[in-house]
Design a protein around this nucleic acid. Structure first.
Length: 556
RNA sequence: UGGGGCGUCGCCAAGCGGUAAGGCACCGGAUUUUGAUUCCGGCAUUCCCAGGUUCGAUCCCUGGCGCCCCAGCCA
């Protein structure tokens, strides 16, 4: 009993794999992550990556990275590179198993000829519109094409001429001969090949015809010996076709397709089209904007790969449409970073404080723990002086009940330093508080009162002459509605106008000046922050807020 | 009113005929020099609805209801 390892969360896919291994159906399992290189990966892909690579990892199998590159007009090398980088960043390794559907184009072509020879495929000369008209509707059967029963030899010759580039785009198409009356529209003589005089990002201009997804995917799985071909629910209707090819072609293996529900996340959009629009309309700064649900954006925001993986594990795998609340993902970074991020003090919206009874010119050093629960993470010294900055929010002239930060006459502890009492404020012509005066208790060095009196509030601070000035960006959700896609309304009307707030002059404790790019800290009492890898400069890191700390005070 | 899928706590999600796991959220309370963390405790007499089979049904049957997907020479 006690030797049992922590149970891996059960889900139907793991159950299937477990049974296939136990029954001996498979000696080892092989999965694959098959992105089309026509865009950047997003958090929804992360779920699929974690499922596929995770299954392989947990059951001692392997997972291939295979680019589903059958449509050269939409695909680009840049995406291929970016996808590889994102998968690696997430922490997965395909080893030597990097493949391209385009690597199988010759085999696929041979199989297409095989189908023609078997009388199971034909060259179509109807236009795209005519094909659509013949396809019928959801409730009416389709009609057979006049070209459906042309002789094998004619089909073969025409298909070879298609390959040779003798026809313009769209002039002809190769179709499977299945069943125009099938209630499953995918079986109504699906298109297998189309003519595309377009260069391919991986195989160049070797081909003038390209296979459709349906004709490429299952066969690629078979070629690679994929045992469990896992995709999202919308492909379930394609499964009979997937199996039809496997049944009618001399493929070397028999993969099986399984489907799961794709990830939906609240307060964001996931479709490639909308993500693209956000970028091109300059609504966001780019694909790696820290507000984007892309893996590049999430990374730049400061999420750790561990947090993203934990999130994918936590949400589970099922077949019912699900909407995961964004707060779940936020909680995943918090719990990861709570363990590992060093703490530091940073004043985001500074209010100057003069400690009137503190000797002018005096500077003291206080030791501050890098992590209160993990002494092995060490400590650093912070400088204290007569003039400091505190957070604007930590002072209220007329505090509400239950406020235990600074207010006139009230005492508070400056973390790691002294207990101070507010003795007055300085206001500008408009009545805004521009400076505050305090007196400190010299007997409270380190923050503990000599007489043992309880101090309810502790606030963070930074010495005005020992801090670094820098930019900090406060990110929030991109949309202010849980489902911006709802009801066909224009999702852009739900854009959160305050999804980013730039604070040009935040004050960081001096130790932060040397922060490496892409390092993460907890700014005490505020949240977790990440030094931006693009905009930081030596000595002046720029910080992105990853997520706030939980806050049971402002919530009230 | 063609085909496919789904419906278990606010959000996910186990469960596979034997009397409702877990996580997140939420609500209490304890500790706390981060109103954080941590820690304890609470949180579905009930599984979309209605019938039926059974000693017994969230799990089987029948009939409803609701939601999602499919008519690209996209994937």
């Amino acid at each position: 009993m006690s030797t049992e390892t922590a149970p891996i969360a059960a889900n139907f896919l793991r159950t299937i794999v477990e049974e296939d291994l136990k029954s001996g159906k498979h000696q080892t399992i092989v999965t694959r992550f098959p992105p089309e290189p026509n865009g950047y990966l997003h958090i929804g892909h992360a779920k699929s990556i974690c499922i596929n690579f995770g299954l392989a990892r947990d059951f001692g199998g392997r997972c291939h990275l295979r680019f589903d590159d059958t449509n050269p007009v939409k695909e680009e090398m840049e995406y291929i590179e970016s996808i590889k980088e994102s998968v690696t960043w997430l922490g997965f390794d395909w080893g030597k198993h990097l493949y391209y559907a385009s690597d199988y184009f010759e085999q696929l072509y041979q199989w297409a000829e095989f189908l023609i020879q078997q009388g199971k495929a034909y060259v179509e000369e109807l236009t795209a519109d005519e094909i659509r008209a013949h396809r019928g509707t959801l409730t009416e059967a389709g009609r057979e094409s006049p070209w459906r029963n042309r002789p094998v030899e004619e089909n073969l010759e025409l298909f070879r001429r298609m390959r040779a580039g003798e026809f313009p785009d769209g002039a002809r198409v190769l179709r499977a001969k299945i069943d125009m009356a099938s209630p499953n529209i995918n079986l109504r003589d699906p298109v297998l090949y189309r003519i595309l005089h377009a260069p391919h990002p991986h195989v160049g201009d070797a081909w003038k015809i390209y296979p459709m997804y349906d004709f490429a995917h299952g066969q690629s799985d078979a070629i690679e010996g994929i045992t469990h071909s896992i995709c999202t629910l919308e492909f379930e209707d394609h499964k009979p076709l997937y199996e039809w090819f496997l049944d009618n072609l001399p493929v070397p293996a028999r993969p099986r397709q399984y489907e799961f529900a794709r990830l939906n996340l609240t307060y964001t959009v996931m479709s490639k089209r909308k993500l693209h629009e956000l970028v091109t309309s300059r609504t966001v700064s780019g694909w790696d904007d820290p507000r984007m649900p892309t893996l590049m954006g999430i990374r730049r925001r400061g999420y750790t790969p561990e947090a993203v993986r934990a999130f994918c594990e936590l949400i589970g795998v099922g077949r019912s449409d699900s909407w995961i609340d964004m707060s779940i993902m936020e909680e995943c970074v918090r719990s990861d970073l709570n363990e590992r991020a060093p703490r530091a003090m940073a004043v985001l919206r500074p209010l100057k404080v003069v400690i009137t009874n503190y000797p002018e010119g005096q500077v003291e050093q206080f030791e501050a723990a890098n992590h209160p629960q993990r002494p092995e993470m060490g400590s650093r010294m912070v400088s204290f002086s007569r003039e400091i900055y505190i957070e604007e929010d930590d002072f209220m002239e007329e505090p509400p009940k239950g406020f235990f930060r600074l207010a006139p006459g009230v005492e508070v502890r400056l973390r790691y330093a002294y207990i101070v009492r507010c003795t007055g404020v300085v206001k500008d012509a408009n009545g805004n508080v521009v400076e505050m005066h305090c007196e400190y208790d010299p007997a409270s060095r380190g923050g503990s009162a000599a007489d043992g009196r309880k101090i309810k509030g502790t606030i963070h601070w930074v010495s005005t002459s020992h801090c670094v000035d820098t930019e900090v960006r406060l990110f929030d959700r991109l949309f202010n509605d849980p489902n911006p896609d709802r009801g066909g309304a224009d999702y852009r009307q739900f854009l959160n106008p305050r999804s980013v707030e730039v604070l040009p002059a935040a004050k960081l404790e001096a130790s932060l000046a040397g922060a490496d790019p892409e390092s993460r800290f907890q700014f005490e009492r505020q949240g977790y922050f990440h030094s931006d890898p693009v905009d930081s400069t030596p000595g002046k890191p720029v910080f992105n807020r990853i997520v706030t700390l939980k806050d049971t005070w402002t919530k009230k």
